[in-house]
Measured scan of single mutants.
Amino acid sequence: TSSHKLRLYERDDYRGLMSELTDDCACVPELFRLPEIYSLHVLEGCWVLYEMPNYRGRQYLLRPGDYRRYHDWGGADAKVGSLRRVTDL
């Protein structure tokens, strides 16, 4: 099985509160109590970021690497509604 891990930060450049995720999350704002995510670091696996909860809205593919600001993943703003692991490519 492949492993997945990413870290979410409330501010750009990996500042502020950090939360780690290793499984799908249908509602990021509810789980982490963060209305917006300004940076993230994908440590393992690929993920799909959705701008709205319950895997809706615009989708962004996140490969392992650094995303210091939301425009690094192509986002128009810092809204992160849900995240899902990519298990098949």
Score class of each variant (00 low, 15 high):
1 T>Q: 13
1 T>F: 15
1 T>Y: 13
1 T>L: 12
1 T>S: 15
1 T>A: 08
2 S>V: 12
3 S>V: 05
4 H>K: 01
4 H>P: 03
4 H>V: 01
4 H>R: 02
4 H>F: 15
5 K>R: 10
5 K>P: 00
6 L>C: 04
6 L>N: 03
7 R>I: 10
7 R>W: 04
9 Y>S: 02
9 Y>T: 00
9 Y>K: 06
10 E>A: 09
10 E>N: 07
11 R>W: 06
11 R>L: 14
11 R>V: 04
11 R>I: 06
11 R>S: 09
11 R>H: 13
14 Y>T: 08
14 Y>C: 05
15 R>K: 15
15 R>P: 04
16 G>R: 06
16 G>T: 04
16 G>Y: 07
17 L>Y: 13
17 L>W: 13
19 S>L: 14
19 S>P: 02
19 S>M: 12
19 S>G: 14
20 E>F: 01
21 L>C: 05
21 L>T: 04
22 T>Y: 12
24 D>W: 03
24 D>Y: 00
25 C>K: 07
25 C>Y: 03
25 C>V: 11
26 A>S: 12
26 A>V: 10
26 A>L: 09
27 C>D: 15
28 V>I: 09
28 V>A: 05
28 V>P: 06
29 P>I: 08
30 E>A: 09
30 E>P: 03
30 E>V: 08
30 E>I: 04
31 L>T: 14
31 L>F: 08
32 F>I: 14
34 L>V: 10
34 L>C: 13
35 P>K: 15
35 P>I: 08
35 P>Y: 12
36 E>Q: 15
36 E>M: 14
36 E>N: 13
37 I>L: 11
37 I>G: 12
37 I>R: 11
37 I>Y: 11
38 Y>I: 12
38 Y>C: 13
39 S>K: 05
39 S>V: 02
39 S>I: 00
40 L>A: 08
40 L>T: 00
41 H>Q: 10
42 V>C: 03
42 V>L: 03
43 L>M: 15
43 L>R: 05
44 E>L: 06
44 E>T: 10
45 G>M: 01
45 G>A: 04
46 C>N: 09
47 W>I: 14
47 W>V: 01
47 W>S: 01
49 L>E: 05
49 L>V: 06
50 Y>I: 15
50 Y>V: 07
50 Y>T: 00
51 E>W: 02
51 E>P: 02
52 M>E: 14
53 P>N: 05
53 P>L: 01
55 Y>H: 02
55 Y>L: 01
57 G>H: 07
57 G>Y: 06
57 G>I: 12
58 R>D: 06
58 R>I: 12
58 R>Q: 15
59 Q>S: 13
59 Q>L: 02
60 Y>N: 01
61 L>V: 11
61 L>W: 14
62 L>H: 01
62 L>W: 06
62 L>V: 13
62 L>I: 07
65 G>K: 07
66 D>P: 13
68 R>C: 03
68 R>S: 07
69 R>V: 11
69 R>N: 14
69 R>S: 13
70 Y>V: 13
72 D>F: 06
72 D>L: 07
73 W>E: 05
73 W>D: 06
73 W>K: 12
74 G>E: 05
75 G>C: 03
75 G>M: 00
76 A>W: 06
76 A>T: 13
76 A>V: 14
77 D>C: 15
77 D>W: 05
77 D>V: 11
77 D>N: 12
78 A>S: 07
79 K>H: 09
80 V>R: 01
80 V>W: 08
80 V>H: 00
80 V>I: 13
81 G>P: 02
82 S>M: 06
84 R>K: 15
85 R>A: 06
85 R>D: 11
85 R>C: 09
87 T>K: 07
87 T>V: 09
88 D>E: 06
88 D>H: 15
89 L>R: 15
89 L>Y: 13
89 L>S: 15
